[in-house]
């Protein structure tokens, strides 16, 4: 299957989902008005990936900030990954935050709690 490579803009995050390595990356800012339009292809990709998922999938999340309508879709991404975990494969989340951005750290904890995925919450090293 094909990979997703989307460059970040002022309104949308950079996305790099690689089906052959199982390494997924989501970074930047996510504040589009039309979140469905942006995230739906990503969710569909994950549905497809689910069928051919690597033994180990890692998602690196390094977001600067995002709006609340994106937050729902970010959870949806995690829920799709939870499905892969439930199939007996390894899935983990690396959630990065700026040292002084306590809220982004707390948001990571919120997602960890709600998604039920194994999380590592890490400070971004310069």
């Amino acid at each position: 299957m094909t990979n997703i490579e989307i460059e970040g803009t002022k309104q949308t995050p950079a996305i790099s989902f690689n089906a052959s390595t199982g390494v997924l990356k989501l970074s930047g800012r996510s504040i589009p008005e039309n979140t469905f339009e942006f995230f739906n292809p990503v969710l569909l990709w994950l549905d497809e990936y689910n069928l051919v998922a690597k033994d180990e999938t890692i998602i690196n999340v390094k977001l600067e900030y995002f709006n609340t309508s994106s937050s729902k879709y970010i959870l949806e991404i995690f829920k799709r990954l939870k499905g892969i975990l439930n199939d007996g494969k390894k899935v983990s989340v690396k959630w990065y935050y700026d040292e002084d951005d306590e809220e982004m750290m707390e948001t990571g904890e919120d997602y960890q709690d709600v998604s039920g995925l194994p999380f590592e919450i890490l400070v971004i090293e310069d």
Partner: peptide
């Protein structure tokens, strides 16, 4: 975050 239906408008609640 967990229970609400996804809406494109984001849902004023959240």
């Amino acid at each position: 975050l967990d229970n609400n239906i996804i809406s494109n408008k984001g849902g004023a609640d959240l």
